[in-house]
Design a protein around this nucleic acid. Structure first.
Lengths: 210, 210
DNA sequence: AAAAAAATACCCCCTAAAGGGTGATTTTTT
DNA sequence: AAAAAATCACCCTTTAGGGGGTATTTTTTT
């Protein structure tokens, strides 16, 4: 599926200058048309369905409902819409929350309009555009700790523990005895300085061991 | 920190045509220099430290040690190096494994050299470049299920359960009583059709509820 | 304003799964 | 040859987790 020139864009952004600037440039330098702009989600929510947007450009720091909370609601109103986040926030949590809640792309506000237009094309073609720094943050969030004190087998077992498997399931999955799983678990606990599954999971998440 | 023109590139790729093609184009159309190329990690591992690469372009499907397994070893040999994966595989698991193991970027093999050169610049500047389809896969892997049957509070509690918190910790964290946590947990179990924490975690992961 | 949904809180009972200790053999790496 | 990792076994103890039931308050939706 390729992007259609008629693709309809809505911009939700409280800063009038940015809002109108992007709108003007998209309308005049791209094949897409900005069919509506709103200064807040609350102003948009009752009208946006009528706009039938294909892509929404959504700011995070909005008056009233913020962009993150607006995301699931927009998705509910317009299940097929692609949403590109535009924000000055680039903390890991904000970025991950936005993506978890259904954003298709994420850009920081200094992004030139040309890049944004490219991003619109990307999402319409099924891609997931991000600015380089955002991508970096996402990648870092996925990265495992390369200096894990655990052996390969122990890491494997810890991984299964973190996804909720019990001793029996782990044993079956790895074709080993329950007692062996127990031994590995004990060794894991010793190395991580914990003495329960719950604590092990917490340390694992915290130190990105899995 | 900006990328230095002298930045040193190593290519590890078994297909001679691709390997030499990229090497030639990078050397002749970019400010970077390809200081060595290898057809496999096993061929590279004893010599690559001497090459002092800033960036390694690494194929996944290599004879002998594959690219994913090579990643941690390369990181050990050259802790500061940036690694860009280049592959035909684009399954979620492969991509996530590569990023988890320390890759800085990820491209599919049809990527034009110009994009790859841009990616080299990106990683040297601290970015995390990915081709649009890869980025999309990464974003999808982070996405939550928008049709969760759980309420906000229940989702919150399930989230805490998945990171290994026990009733007491959850209660404390949410400023509610342990008994309330229990009630929520019961409701979660009913909705998810499970009857243990372990199962709940598995369903949560499986259905991307958290 | 009324109804529905969500969040909060308590009580009793009960056991399965988890955790601690100790020891030993086999396989893989260095 | 030595060290590290992975495998398996037996005993014993406990607690955090789970089932059932009931009820009030707060928030949201209609």
């Amino acid at each position: 599926m390729y992007s259609q020139p008629e693709s309809r864009i809505v911009i939700i952004e409280d800063d009038q200058t940015i809002r109108e600037g992007y709108a003007y440039l998209i309308n005049h330098t791209s094949p897409y048309q900005v069919v509506a702009t709103y200064p807040s989600f609350d102003a948009a929510k009752h009208k946006i369905s009528k706009d039938q947007p294909d892509v929404i450009i959504l700011d995070i720091q909005l008056p009233g409902t913020n962009g993150i909370d607006a995301l699931p609601q927009l998705k509910k109103l317009l299940p097929q819409v692609y949403i590109i986040m535009l924000t000055v926030y680039e903390t890991e949590k904000t970025i991950l929350d936005a993506l978890a809640n259904g954003a298709s792309g994420y850009f920081t506000k200094n992004t030139p309009t040309a890049k944004l237009i490219e991003a619109i094309k990307d999402v319409l073609n099924g891609g997931g555009p991000m600015s380089p720094d955002v991508a970096k943050t996402v990648i870092l969030s996925l990265q495992k700790n390369p200096d894990s004190p655990l052996t390969k087998r122990e890491t494997q077992i810890l991984e299964l523990i973190t996804i909720g498997k019990d001793r029996g399931q782990i044993a079956k999955e790895l074709f080993i005895e329950v007692e062996t799983v127990k031994t590995h678990t004990k060794n894991i606990y010793t190395k991580l300085n914990v003495n329960s599954k719950a604590e092990a999971i917490q340390v694992a998440k915290d130190k990105r061991l899995v």
